[in-house]
């Protein structure tokens, strides 16, 4: 019972996402397409990639990506195509540019600031 539950939680969703019929015959192209779909956010479920999602839109996007890979479009062009239509939000890993510079850099600044505060606090504690 416990095993079934654990199996369901971890593997059931995977089983319902990519339909084997979607796979490309050429394994190299399939691998490329799969990598792209793993980096594209499912806009309906949002916390999943379209590779993991069973939403109809995710399936449409998976098919479209495979079609574009088969037609010979490079990865960058496919990402650009999707970004132009759905915005940067569709990328699970957003690009590093001036508009989101603060989002990338601030966590590290806070981390260093935190370490510095702890360091100062420890130093003061030792003096007492």
């Amino acid at each position: 019972m416990f095993f079934t539950l654990v199996f369901s939680i971890f593997f059931l969703n995977e089983a319902y996402s990519v339909d084997p019929e979607e796979f490309l015959q050429n394994s190299k192209l399939e691998l490329r397409a799969r990598n792209i779909t793993k980096n594209i956010r499912c806009l309906v479920c949002q916390n999943q990639s379209i590779d993991e999602s069973s939403a109809p839109l995710a399936k449409d996007l998976r098919l479209l990506i495979r079609e574009k890979v088969e037609e010979g479009h490079p990865d960058s062009e496919i990402y650009k195509f999707l970004e132009e239509r759905y915005g940067e939000f569709i990328l699970l890993k957003p690009s590093f540019n001036m508009s989101n510079f603060a989002l990338w850099i601030l966590p590290f600044l806070f981390l260093f600031f935190g370490i510095y505060v702890i360091f100062l606090h420890n130093k003061k504690s030792k003096n007492f």
Binding site: L43, P56, L57, D60, L61, R85, Y86
Partner: peptide, 13 residues
């Protein structure tokens, strides 16, 4: 029929 025009317009629901 296939939802391709929707994708072209950035439709998600």
């Amino acid at each position: 029929n296939k939802g391709n025009i929707g994708i072209d317009w950035g439709v998600y629901g």
